[in-house]
Design a protein around this nucleic acid. Sequence first.
DNA 1: GTCTATAGACTGATAGAC
DNA 2: GTCTATCAGTCTATAGAC
Lengths: 210, 210
Amino acid sequence: MKIQPEIELNATTEEKIKEAARRVFTSKGYAATRTRDIAEESGYNLALINYYFRSKEKLFDIIMLEHLQLFIHSVMGIVNDPETSVHEKIELLISHYIDMLIKNPDLPLFVLSEINANPVKLAAKLGFGHVERGNIYLVKQWKELTAAKILPNVNPLHILMNVLSMTIFPFVASPLLRNRTGISQEEFNKLMLERKKLIPVWINAMITTS
Amino acid sequence: MKIQPEIELNATTEEKIKEAARRVFTSKGYAATRTRDIAEESGYNLALINYYFRSKEKLFDIIMLEHLQLFIHSVMGIVNDPETSVHEKIELLISHYIDMLIKNPDLPLFVLSEINANPVKLAAKLGFGHVERGNIYLVKQWKELTAAKILPNVNPLHILMNVLSMTIFPFVASPLLRNRTGISQEEFNKLMLERKKLIPVWINAMITTS
DNA sequence: GTCTATAGACTGATAGAC
DNA sequence: GTCTATCAGTCTATAGAC
């Protein structure tokens, strides 16, 4: 699944239009995107968008579904791995997200905005492939550790919020942050790479002092 | 400055239109908002919007400027207070934001989306009233404490990111979070009120273990 | 100040030539 | 498959009646 695609010489017209649409939708959002923008970005004509995808909305739905999978379902492999410990899972999750978001920095703001704009419509897409919380291996491990009093009895939802917040929010606030602090894109990415090591340490600190 | 206004019986037509515009813009964003939506929400006719505000864009600019002040400049009073300690400032900041965001939950996603959509245009507005970082009292206090080795020498930008992330991000991700966990709006607000006390403790933990 | 009616530009989508 | 030309609908903004 590509977001920032390499130039594929042998990509079909359909694929090229889809990649162009992905770029335009992700940077401007659904409402601000004109089908003419996508046509121009793809190098093809406006009529071809409807030829291949029937409507602006159907094209958007295809792209949004792929983004949701990238954003949510891709982490299922990490949190369901029976071979890794809780701390390793947290570390892998943070590392996975930061690498992915450095490549696709406007993905989270796009996804969260569009979910907010149309929560009912996207609930169905989100439900697809939904795994019951009790069946997630990470949840099982967490419960075992709290039962054995190895972990303190904190609400795991708070910890989850903290992991995702500290990992994802800087990308969401990046334009504002860069405006206020004056740091460059490169300096920002360097900070985020530092955070791959720092966030797990901070999470440990807040768990053990709870 | 009101976002969720009480019904003001003696509000002027101009104020009523502005409040209606605030509600519609904030929930749908600039591009998805039609001037007809604002007219309908205000109870007045479409023509009056242009009579009072000349254009959709000028009306939007007025509202965005007020939101930016609410979002950014309102905290200046806290971080510039010479009477409070660093830890008190952090505590007050978190408390202030959480109270404000419980009242205006879609404010951050709106502001961040629009800045992302038009960073150049909003840079001017953000610069207005900009205070040099060196002159902020919190920054001065922080430097003194690290110089005296009372605080460890961590990059304060990371700490700032963590405070804002853990405080603001849950509101940004709230629709997704509620979809995945099934918690209600009330339960979410209760979690956020808990975080008013928890986040300062966590921040302390991560500072002292650095 | 507030309304109705409408101008003028733009949008998503399609017909039809090649 | 790909294009040009165009339709029908919607948008912002304004003219003009009251």
